[in-house]
Design a protein around this nucleic acid. Structure first.
Length: 295
DNA sequence: TCGCAGGTGGTCG
DNA sequence: CGACCACCTGCG
């Protein structure tokens, strides 16, 4: 399969997108490109500077035009005008202006719901290298093939059907720790509801962001933070504002909100970031991670 | 050795 | 409700 080229990408940076903690299945290559898998396909993405830096093209290798239009355009949220959102967010917010500068090319990936649920249940009280390892092992042992790229075979996240039939023992090689029973139980809950199609339909029908959040909270291992991540990355609910230790820190140091007061943080996000809360969160997150110990 | 890593469930007051 | 605290695991 050949390459597909999407010309003139705006507000787009591979590191900002794939290394900001929203996804766990993409890895940076020596040349700065990213190889990974989603929606049952494995591809490589790179950026190419055209006409002396006047323009940036996105090159997707191992991808047809149909695949790009049906899968990757939506996955990368390419139809959204992030330039406009950035201008809105920074209008009267010097802190955000600074954060946006550092993560100017962030985009919220529209990931598959089930994969997002699994990924963020695993992410709790865990670190990124280990999260990646757990997911990798899980797909290799129990997932369907998702094609290959660069001589390496990729697999999908095991379906709820498969996962619901597993025991904690079966999952031991994945080193999930106490999260293993959470995954199995969540898979069973999905099956009881009639499968992911049904779950997606029910979430689609949820009348408010609060209803979406409460529905997600109903799954085992899904607390406030994980529910917000699932809403944001798996459902495209861009108003969702996940509050983790980093966001706590940045909201405290930069906006002066009490680090324990998540209510106040949510209220602040709702008032100041509104429907773009999740995107704002990503800028803040990327920004504070970049600062390291300076805060 | 022990604390920590993008939290959550269970238990108490 | 809100405040605690144990919790798999691997790394520094």
């Amino acid at each position: 399969m050949g390459k597909y080229i999407y010309e003139d990408v705006k507000d787009f940076n591979l590191d900002h997108i794939f290394d900001c903690g929203q996804c766990f299945r993409w890895s940076r290559q020596e040349d700065g490109s990213y190889t990974g898998t989603a929606m049952g396909k494995a591809v490589n993405m790179s950026l190419k500077s055209v006409s002396e830096g006047q323009r940036l093209d996105l090159v997707v290798d191992n991808c047809t035009e149909d695949d790009f239009k049906q899968i990757w355009g939506g996955y990368l949220d390419l139809d959204r005008d992030y330039g406009y959102i950035k201008r809105t967010l920074t209008e009267s917010d010097q802190v955000m202006a600074k954060a946006v500068e550092g993560g100017q090319g962030i985009r919220i990936l529209r990931q598959e719901l089930w994969e997002t649920m699994i990924s963020f249940i695993i992410s709790q009280n865990n670190n990124i290298p280990r999260i990646k390892g757990c997911i990798e092992k899980l797909t290799q042992l129990f997932g369907e093939p998702a094609g290959e790229y660069g001589g390496r075979e990729y697999f999908n996240i095991p379906s709820p059907e498969v996962m619901a039939g597993l025991s904690a023992e079966d999952l031991a090689p994945c080193r999930l720790g106490y999260r293993a029973p959470y995954l199995v139980e969540t898979a069973r809950q999905v099956m009881e509801k009639g499968g992911m199609k049904k779950v997606e339909a029910e979430l689609e029908a949820a009348p408010t962001p609060e209803a979406v959040y409460e529905y997600l909270r109903g799954f085992k291992g899904v607390g406030p933070k994980v529910a917000s991540c699932i809403a944001l990355f798996g459902l495209g609910r861009l108003e969702a504002f996940p509050i983790d230790v980093w966001v706590r820190r940045v909201m405290n140091r930069l906006y002066g909100i009490d680090e324990k007061d998540t209510k106040a943080m949510n209220a602040y996000a709702m008032e100041h970031f509104g429907e773009n809360g999740g995107i704002a969160q990503q800028y803040l997150f990327y920004y504070i991670r970049g600062l390291g110990d300076q805060l």
